[in-house]
Protein backbone atom coordinates (compact mmCIF):
# COMPACT_ATOMS: atom_id res chain seq x y z
CA UNK A 1 0.00 0.00 0.00
CA UNK A 2 1.37 3.41 -0.95
CA UNK A 3 0.88 6.11 1.62
CA UNK A 4 1.89 8.82 -0.81
CA UNK A 5 2.01 8.78 -4.55
CA UNK A 6 2.55 11.53 -7.07
CA UNK A 7 1.89 11.24 -10.77
CA UNK A 8 3.34 13.65 -13.26
CA UNK A 9 3.76 16.32 -10.60
CA UNK A 10 4.66 19.69 -12.06
CA UNK A 11 5.20 22.99 -10.29
CA UNK A 12 5.89 26.43 -11.72
CA UNK A 13 6.79 29.54 -9.78
CA UNK A 14 5.85 32.08 -12.40
CA UNK A 15 8.10 31.33 -15.36
CA UNK A 16 10.33 29.05 -13.33
CA UNK A 17 9.64 25.36 -13.90
CA UNK A 18 10.66 23.86 -10.55
CA UNK A 19 9.23 20.34 -10.75
CA UNK A 20 9.10 18.62 -14.10
CA UNK A 21 6.87 15.59 -13.86
CA UNK A 22 7.70 13.81 -10.62
CA UNK A 23 6.44 10.27 -10.15
CA UNK A 24 7.05 9.26 -6.57
CA UNK A 25 5.64 6.46 -4.49
CA UNK A 26 6.22 5.94 -0.80
CA UNK A 27 5.05 2.65 0.65
CA UNK A 28 3.80 2.21 4.17
CA UNK A 29 6.71 2.05 6.60
CA UNK A 30 9.18 3.12 3.96
CA UNK A 31 11.92 5.67 4.61
CA UNK A 32 12.65 7.65 1.46
CA UNK A 33 15.54 10.10 1.44
CA UNK A 34 15.74 12.75 -1.24
CA UNK A 35 19.11 14.26 -2.06
CA UNK A 36 20.33 16.63 -4.73
CA UNK A 37 21.91 20.03 -5.26
CA UNK A 38 20.20 23.15 -3.96
CA UNK A 39 17.58 24.46 -6.33
CA UNK A 40 16.86 20.97 -7.61
CA UNK A 41 13.29 21.08 -6.28
CA UNK A 42 13.60 18.73 -3.29
CA UNK A 43 11.92 21.02 -0.77
CA UNK A 44 9.27 22.09 -3.24
CA UNK A 45 8.42 18.46 -3.87
CA UNK A 46 8.02 17.87 -0.15
CA UNK A 47 5.85 20.99 0.22
CA UNK A 48 3.66 19.87 -2.67
CA UNK A 49 2.93 16.62 -0.86
CA UNK A 50 1.03 18.41 1.92
CA UNK A 51 -0.09 21.27 -0.28
CA UNK A 52 1.88 24.01 1.40
CA UNK A 53 2.60 24.61 -2.27
CA UNK A 54 -0.08 23.81 -4.80
CA UNK A 55 1.05 21.56 -7.65
CA UNK A 56 0.22 22.71 -11.18
CA UNK A 57 -3.05 21.69 -12.82
CA UNK A 58 -2.90 18.13 -14.09
CA UNK A 59 -0.53 16.93 -11.38
CA UNK A 60 -1.78 14.16 -9.14
CA UNK A 61 -1.04 13.60 -5.48
CA UNK A 62 -2.60 10.57 -3.82
CA UNK A 63 -2.81 9.89 -0.10
CA UNK A 64 -3.58 6.26 0.74
CA UNK A 65 -4.55 5.80 -2.88
CA UNK A 66 -7.10 8.62 -2.80
CA UNK A 67 -6.40 11.54 -5.13
CA UNK A 68 -6.25 14.88 -3.32
CA UNK A 69 -8.12 17.60 -5.10
CA UNK A 70 -7.48 21.04 -3.57
CA UNK A 71 -10.80 22.23 -4.98
CA UNK A 72 -12.97 19.61 -3.27
CA UNK A 73 -10.86 18.09 -0.48
CA UNK A 74 -10.54 19.87 2.81
CA UNK A 75 -6.78 20.39 2.81
CA UNK A 76 -6.74 20.99 6.56
CA UNK A 77 -7.96 17.41 7.00
CA UNK A 78 -5.34 16.19 4.54
CA UNK A 79 -2.55 18.02 6.36
CA UNK A 80 -3.66 16.56 9.67
CA UNK A 81 -2.57 13.19 8.35
CA UNK A 82 0.93 14.35 7.39
CA UNK A 83 3.45 15.65 9.88
CA UNK A 84 6.03 18.15 8.72
CA UNK A 85 9.27 19.29 10.30
CA UNK A 86 11.02 22.37 8.95
CA UNK A 87 14.63 23.46 8.67
CA UNK A 88 14.02 26.46 10.93
CA UNK A 89 11.83 24.64 13.50
CA UNK A 90 9.08 27.26 13.62
CA UNK A 91 8.16 26.46 17.18
CA UNK A 92 5.49 28.84 18.46
CA UNK A 93 7.49 31.29 20.62
CA UNK A 94 4.48 32.38 22.69
CA UNK A 95 3.74 28.83 23.84
CA UNK A 96 5.87 26.73 26.14
CA UNK A 97 7.14 23.36 25.01
CA UNK A 98 4.16 21.40 26.28
CA UNK A 99 1.65 23.77 24.69
CA UNK A 100 3.55 23.77 21.41
CA UNK A 101 2.76 20.07 21.28
CA UNK A 102 -0.81 20.15 22.62
CA UNK A 103 -2.13 23.13 20.67
CA UNK A 104 -2.94 21.22 17.47
CA UNK A 105 -4.42 18.08 19.04
CA UNK A 106 -6.61 20.26 21.27
CA UNK A 107 -7.73 22.80 18.71
CA UNK A 108 -7.71 20.79 15.50
CA UNK A 109 -8.73 17.36 16.73
CA UNK A 110 -10.77 18.59 19.68
CA UNK A 111 -8.83 16.38 22.06
CA UNK A 112 -9.27 17.04 25.78
CA UNK A 113 -6.51 18.97 27.50
CA UNK A 114 -5.73 16.00 29.75
CA UNK A 115 -5.42 13.58 26.84
CA UNK A 116 -3.33 16.01 24.79
CA UNK A 117 -0.99 16.56 27.73
CA UNK A 118 -0.61 12.83 28.24
CA UNK A 119 0.36 12.38 24.59
CA UNK A 120 2.70 15.36 24.70
CA UNK A 121 4.50 14.07 27.78
CA UNK A 122 4.87 10.64 26.26
CA UNK A 123 6.35 12.18 23.09
CA UNK A 124 8.68 14.45 25.06
CA UNK A 125 10.00 11.32 26.70
CA UNK A 126 10.52 9.70 23.32
CA UNK A 127 12.49 12.64 21.96
CA UNK A 128 14.58 12.76 25.13
CA UNK A 129 13.20 15.98 26.62
CA UNK A 130 10.99 14.83 29.50
CA UNK A 131 12.13 17.68 31.75
CA UNK A 132 11.55 20.50 29.26
CA UNK A 133 7.76 20.73 29.13
CA UNK A 134 7.67 24.08 30.93
CA UNK A 135 10.60 25.58 29.01
CA UNK A 136 10.07 28.29 26.38
CA UNK A 137 11.35 27.75 22.86
CA UNK A 138 13.77 30.65 23.32
CA UNK A 139 15.48 28.73 26.11
CA UNK A 140 16.21 25.64 24.01
CA UNK A 141 19.20 24.75 21.85
CA UNK A 142 18.63 24.18 18.15
CA UNK A 143 18.71 20.42 18.58
CA UNK A 144 16.18 20.59 21.40
CA UNK A 145 13.92 22.88 19.36
CA UNK A 146 13.97 20.47 16.47
CA UNK A 147 13.14 17.54 18.73
CA UNK A 148 10.18 19.47 20.12
CA UNK A 149 9.11 20.24 16.54
CA UNK A 150 9.21 16.52 15.76
CA UNK A 151 7.13 15.77 18.86
CA UNK A 152 4.67 18.51 17.87
CA UNK A 153 4.16 16.91 14.45
CA UNK A 154 3.88 13.42 15.94
CA UNK A 155 1.21 14.55 18.39
CA UNK A 156 -1.26 14.66 15.52
CA UNK A 157 -0.59 10.96 14.97
CA UNK A 158 0.24 11.38 11.27
CA UNK A 159 0.45 8.57 8.74
CA UNK A 160 3.60 9.99 7.25
CA UNK A 161 6.31 12.40 8.32
CA UNK A 162 7.95 14.90 6.00
CA UNK A 163 11.37 16.20 7.04
CA UNK A 164 12.67 19.24 5.19
CA UNK A 165 16.42 19.60 5.79
CA UNK A 166 15.78 19.39 9.50
CA UNK A 167 19.47 19.35 10.50
CA UNK A 168 20.72 22.04 8.11
CA UNK A 169 20.30 24.91 10.59
CA UNK A 170 21.91 23.07 13.48
CA UNK A 171 25.36 23.39 14.95
CA UNK A 172 27.31 20.27 13.93
CA UNK A 173 27.43 18.83 17.44
CA UNK A 174 23.61 18.96 17.70
CA UNK A 175 22.87 17.07 14.49
CA UNK A 176 23.29 13.60 15.98
CA UNK A 177 20.61 13.99 18.67
CA UNK A 178 18.01 14.95 16.05
CA UNK A 179 19.02 12.20 13.65
CA UNK A 180 18.80 9.71 16.51
CA UNK A 181 15.16 10.66 17.10
CA UNK A 182 14.40 10.24 13.41
CA UNK A 183 16.20 6.93 13.33
CA UNK A 184 14.11 5.72 16.30
CA UNK A 185 10.99 6.76 14.44
CA UNK A 186 12.09 4.84 11.37
CA UNK A 187 12.79 1.79 13.49
CA UNK A 188 9.28 2.12 14.88
CA UNK A 189 7.88 1.76 11.37
CA UNK A 190 6.98 5.38 10.61
CA UNK A 191 6.62 6.19 6.94
CA UNK A 192 8.80 9.15 6.07
CA UNK A 193 10.15 11.30 3.32
CA UNK A 194 13.25 13.21 4.19
CA UNK A 195 15.15 15.86 2.30
CA UNK A 196 18.66 15.95 3.69
CA UNK A 197 22.33 16.53 3.08
CA UNK A 198 23.29 13.93 5.68
CA UNK A 199 24.64 11.23 3.40
CA UNK A 200 25.81 8.97 6.19
CA UNK A 201 22.35 9.01 7.67
CA UNK A 202 20.77 8.34 4.27
CA UNK A 203 23.00 5.34 3.80
CA UNK A 204 22.16 3.96 7.22
CA UNK A 205 18.45 4.63 7.61
CA UNK A 206 16.92 5.02 4.16
CA UNK A 207 15.12 2.22 2.39
CA UNK A 208 15.46 4.14 -0.83
CA UNK A 209 17.51 7.14 -1.91
CA UNK A 210 16.26 9.48 -4.59
CA UNK A 211 18.54 11.87 -6.44
CA UNK A 212 16.90 14.98 -7.84
CA UNK A 213 18.35 17.53 -10.20
CA UNK A 214 16.74 20.30 -12.18
CA UNK A 215 13.21 19.39 -11.10
CA UNK A 216 13.47 15.73 -12.03
CA UNK A 217 14.21 12.44 -10.32
CA UNK A 218 17.34 11.34 -12.13
CA UNK A 219 18.23 8.25 -10.17
CA UNK A 220 16.95 6.20 -7.28
CA UNK A 221 17.87 3.02 -5.53
CA UNK A 222 18.48 1.11 -2.37
CA UNK A 223 21.20 3.01 -0.46
CA UNK A 224 24.10 0.55 -0.49
CA UNK A 225 24.01 0.19 -4.25
CA UNK A 226 23.11 3.84 -4.80
CA UNK A 227 26.15 5.17 -2.96
CA UNK A 228 28.53 2.45 -4.15
CA UNK A 229 27.64 2.50 -7.82
CA UNK A 230 25.69 5.55 -8.94
CA UNK A 231 24.98 5.26 -12.63
CA UNK A 232 24.18 8.84 -13.56
CA UNK A 233 27.02 11.26 -14.14
CA UNK A 234 25.25 14.04 -12.24
CA UNK A 235 24.80 11.76 -9.23
CA UNK A 236 28.48 10.90 -9.26
CA UNK A 237 29.44 14.56 -9.46
CA UNK A 238 27.06 15.51 -6.67
CA UNK A 239 28.13 12.68 -4.38
CA UNK A 240 31.77 13.51 -5.11
CA UNK A 241 31.12 17.08 -3.99
CA UNK A 242 29.20 16.33 -0.79
CA UNK A 243 31.16 13.30 0.34
CA UNK A 244 34.57 14.93 -0.04
CA UNK A 245 33.50 18.23 1.39
Amino acid sequence: MNVIETRNLHKHFGELHVLKGIDLTVAEGEVVVIIGPSGSGKSTLLRCLNFLEFPDEGSEVLLDGEPIDPASNNLDKVRERMGMVFQHFYLFPHKNVLNNITIAPENVKGMTRAKAKEIARDLLGKVGLPDKEKAWPSQLSGGQKQRVAIARALAMDPEIMLFDEVTSALDPELVAEVLQVIQDLAAGGMTMVMVTHEMGFAREVADRVIMMDDGMIIEEGEPAAFFANPTEERTKTFLGQVLHA
Binding site: N50, L52, D76, K77, R79, E80, M82, G83, M84, F86, H88, Y90, L91, F92, P93, H94, I103, A104, N107, V108, K109, A149, R152, A153, M156
Partner: peptide, 26 residues
Amino acid sequence: DHGQHEAARSLGMSRRLSMRLIILPQ
Protein backbone atom coordinates in the same frame (compact mmCIF):
# COMPACT_ATOMS: atom_id res chain seq x y z
CA ASP B 1 7.53 34.92 10.08
CA HIS B 2 5.50 33.20 7.39
CA GLY B 3 6.98 29.93 8.66
CA GLN B 4 4.81 30.30 11.78
CA HIS B 5 1.71 30.22 9.61
CA GLU B 6 3.07 27.30 7.56
CA ALA B 7 3.87 25.33 10.68
CA ALA B 8 0.33 25.92 11.93
CA ARG B 9 -1.18 24.91 8.58
CA SER B 10 1.01 21.81 8.41
CA LEU B 11 -0.58 20.72 11.70
CA GLY B 12 -4.02 20.90 10.13
CA MET B 13 -5.03 24.34 11.36
CA SER B 14 -7.28 26.36 9.11
CA ARG B 15 -6.25 29.84 8.01
CA ARG B 16 -8.57 31.30 10.62
CA LEU B 17 -7.33 29.08 13.45
CA SER B 18 -3.71 29.82 12.56
CA MET B 19 -4.48 33.55 12.66
CA ARG B 20 -6.25 33.31 16.02
CA LEU B 21 -3.93 30.91 17.86
CA ILE B 22 -0.54 31.55 16.30
CA ILE B 23 -0.27 34.85 14.42
CA LEU B 24 -2.41 37.29 16.40
CA PRO B 25 -1.04 36.48 19.87
CA GLN B 26 2.47 37.09 18.59
